[in-house]
Every structure is written in C-alpha cells, then in structure tokens.
C-alpha cells in the first residue's frame, strides 16, 4: 500500500494525534502526569474546529471547562457595558490555553472567546475531570492539584498588585 494518498491520510492522522499529545503535555494543568496518564487524558478531550469569526463561548454563559489551542488564534474579549464596545483583553495562539478555572465550578464566563482565524482546539471539561477522578483518582488528584497551584499563583500576583496599589496611594 505505497500509495501517496494513503500515506498522506495516515501521516495526517498520526500528526494530529501527536499534535494533540504534545499540546496536552505542554499544558501546565497536566504537569507531573506520566506519558501513560497523558494518553489516558487524551482519550477524554474533544477536538473542536472553529471558523474565523466563530465564538468558542460567550460571556456569562455557564463555564464548563478549558480549551487548549492546537492551531489558530483566539481573542478574549469583553463588552463594555456603557458603550457596548468590545475590548480586547488578550490574544492567544498555538499551545496556549484558557478557561481552566471553569474546571472547578459552573460560574458564568467572565469574557467571550472569539476565533480571529481558523482554529483547532482541544476541549477538556469539568464532566471529564469528574469522570477521571472517578475512574483514575490518582490522575484526577494530580490535575486538581495543578489547578489549585495555578489559582494560588494568580492569587499571589493579585495580592502583590493590590499591595502595590495600596502603597502607591500612601
């Protein structure tokens, strides 16, 4: 079966799987997971493709989970209540991820995610995390610990900024 057509199909399939694995491995939410465990996580994520201009989620929708960008570009935007203008908060590219706090609860999304280019993402959701915790508690606890670590880091950054602002005023 040395047909270029088949080679191409299998090569693409293999490269997508390898790309997915790399993306999961590089996301710090899955830090400390062994290759076998990462492969298990890979069976739990969803590959989603979005066209340019398509929303991944909208502000105030219930948060269900996080997305890792495989390729493409995602803008995190917030609508100003007063003039209804869209403020660009940040632009995320290949390998970056967003929405990880939604793994913990169903709080509404604080901003919208809009694809500014054709984008492929891997979605990992709270229901999948709960499923992992149920089926493989060790993997589940490692992921939850990583989420807690990320939260702790952000809280420290926020505290420092608050401290700086308070001391600037004085």
């Amino acid at each position: 079966m040395n047909s270029p057509l088949w080679d191409n199909i299998f090569k693409n399939k293999k490269s997508t799987k390898a790309l997915e694995f790399e993306a999961i491995k590089n996301a710090n939410i899955f830090d400390g997971l062994k290759n076998k465990e990462l492969k298990f996580v890979q069976t739990m994520v969803y590959l989603r493709k979005f066209n340019k201009g398509e929303y991944i989620f909208k502000k105030s929708n219930p948060g269900n989970g996080m997305y890792i960008i495989l390729k493409g570009e995602v803008q995190i935007i917030d609508k100003n209540k007063k003039d209804q203008k869209q403020n660009l908060l940040t632009t995320l590219v290949d390998g970056e991820f967003f929405g990880e706090l939604s793994l913990l609860d169903e709080s509404p999304r604080s901003a919208s995610a809009l694809c500014s280019d054709y984008t492929e993402t891997l979605g990992f959701f709270r229901s999948d995390l709960l499923d992992i915790t149920n089926r493989k508690p060790l993997i589940g606890s490692k992921i939850v610990l990583n989420v807690a670590r990320i939260l702790g880091e952000r809280l420290r950054v926020t505290n420092n900024k608050l401290y700086e602002i308070q001391h600037k005023d004085k």
């Binding site: 969803y46 989603r48 989970g65 229901s127």
Partner: peptide
C-alpha cells in the same frame, strides 16, 4: 468514551458545551 465522542462530534459548535453539560 468513543461513543460519547462520536455523538458529540456531530453537534455544532454553538450547542457543544450545552450538550456536553446536559449529557453529564
């Protein structure tokens, strides 16, 4: 898992998160 993924793949992006949450 494969069946769930296959089913979810058929759902348009707009209803993807809603369907996933509903299924669970």
């Amino acid at each position: 898992r494969q069946l769930k993924k296959g089913l979810i793949n058929l759902i348009p992006n707009k209803y993807f998160e809603l369907s996933l949450s509903l299924m669970y």
